[in-house]
């Protein structure tokens, strides 16, 4: 399984990467502190390996919602291998409701990412 982490906080990227690698199911983990770079990476990727994307909501320049909107505008065959999860430290009802409105987003997850949340994500995607 491949993973992409998009978060403007270097620390949260570090945590996510560690936890992902600890699962033992990680073939490749890419980390981006800027959503624009993450999007470029997805656009240019040619292989069709299944990939889980964790994206933070509040980021400067391009926030999580803008990222998802841009992602949803990509061609279907580009989008196909990705499962997107949105992460946030905010407990804002509007944000949580907004996440549900995006077809390409699987779930909203609370920060910080823990072994348990990752385990639940992998289970949902039938990876054991």
């Amino acid at each position: 399984m491949n993973f992409i982490v998009i978060d403007d906080s270097k620390l949260d990227c570090f945590i996510a990467e560690k936890i992902i690698k600890n699962t033992g199911h990680c073939d490749e983990c890419k980390v981006f502190q800027q959503a624009t770079e993450g999007l470029e990476y997805i656009k240019n990727k040619t292989d069709k390996n299944e990939t889980v994307v964790f994206v933070d909501i509040q980021m400067p320049v391009m926030n999580g919602f803008e990222f998802v909107e841009a992602f949803e505008g990509l061609a279907d065959d580009v989008k196909e291998p990705y499962s997107i999860y949105m992460l946030s430290s905010s407990i804002n009802e509007n944000d949580i409701a907004k996440v549900k409105g995006y077809a390409s987003v699987k779930h909203f997850l609370n920060k910080p990412l823990t072994n348990d949340t990752i385990a639940a994500v992998l289970e949902e995607l039938n990876i054991t």
Binding site: S9, L11, D12, F14, I15, K18, I19, N22, Q58, S88, S89, S90, I91, N92, K111, P112, L113, T114, N115
Partner: peptide, 24 residues
Amino acid sequence: AYSATHDMRGPILSVLGIVDLMKN
């Protein structure tokens, strides 16, 4: 109120995440 939850909780949650990692 919106930003406070993000900017004040954010660093706390990050540290909690690290603390969790440090256990092992």
